[in-house]
């Protein structure tokens, strides 16, 4: 357990030390500040727009950080040969990967905390309220999504080169909504074989759109927060996919000659 914590701490510190996390955060914060500073016709309390833009920027910036960070973890260890002294220690590969996973998630949390701070200050400045229960559920579901993206990033980086892994990760994140809509829409257009394929794909591809609670958070005056049962199912869903990718990573990792 201690070794997991040590590795995750290294990942987190390195993420904080590296310039890109600041560049992404700075650019996003700049965008947020500009948006919050625009005076829209001297009207107070136009919160839906601010909420939507802030949540989108938060999510995009964190996802980008997580995808880049997770995709780079393993290849760099191999490239710089820093993995060899680590593996020489009595450290299990599962602990090593778990440490990396925890580190990236903590980095995502670090990103979210920065954005949350700006969002809260901005909202108070604009003069609106924060729908706390919606907002916290939104963050929780985003973290589950980041967990899937992290393990997927590890896996992709083990089977293809870095740029390709990052590109594929970003495409997967950006097209999440298209994916889920297209499956339901195409179902009526295809034959039996197509229908079977779509059903299988729906269940074997993680539907990241399910972790995007921004719609209800933006229009929170109309929609209630999610019930615990739904949150539990979504948590299990995220763990199933992350666990599966994690296991695949372990298998590939073991086969790699170290």
């Amino acid at each position: 357990m201690r070794s997991i914590w040590l590795i995750s701490r290294t990942v987190l510190l390195e993420a904080i030390r590296r310039k890109e996390i600041y560049a992404i955060t700075l650019v996003s914060l700049l965008l947020l500040t500009v948006i919050f500073s625009i005076d829209f016709f001297q009207i107070e309390g136009l919160m839906k727009f601010y909420r939507e833009v802030a949540l989108k920027i938060m999510s995009m910036a964190t996802a980008l950080t997580v995808i880049v960070l997770s995709s780079r973890q393993l290849p760099r260890e191999f490239e710089n040969k820093t993995i060899y002294p680590l593996m020489a220690k009595p450290l299990r590969r599962t602990s090593f990967l778990s440490g990396k996973l925890l580190g990236v998630i903590l980095a995502a949390l670090f990103c979210f905390s920065l954005f949350m701070f700006v969002y809260i200050i901005g909202t108070l400045y604009v003069g609106g309220g924060i729908p706390w229960s919606h907002f916290l559920q939104y963050i929780y579901l985003q973290l589950l999504q980041m967990m899937i993206l992290t393990t997927l990033g590890f896996l992709l980086s083990l089977v293809m080169n870095l740029d390709a892994a990052i590109t594929l990760g970003i495409i997967f994140y950006i097209t999440a909504n298209i994916l889920i809509t297209s499956f339901t829409y195409l179902y009526d257009f295809v034959g039996i074989f197509g229908k079977t394929m779509l059903t299988v794909l729906t269940f074997i591809i993680p539907q990241l759109a399910l972790f995007d609670f921004s719609g209800k958070t933006v229009h929170s005056e109309v929609w209630p927060p999610l019930d615990l049962n739904t949150l539990a199912i979504l948590t299990a869903y995220a763990f199933v996919f992350s666990g599966f990718y994690y296991l695949l990573c372990i298998v590939i990792f073991r086969r790699r000659a170290i």
Binding site: T202, Q207, F211, F213, I233
Partner: peptide
Amino acid sequence: KDFRGIIGELHRRVKP
């Protein structure tokens, strides 16, 4: 009209 079972149910619950 949804063939997706639990996924469809979650989709309806999470999104407006």
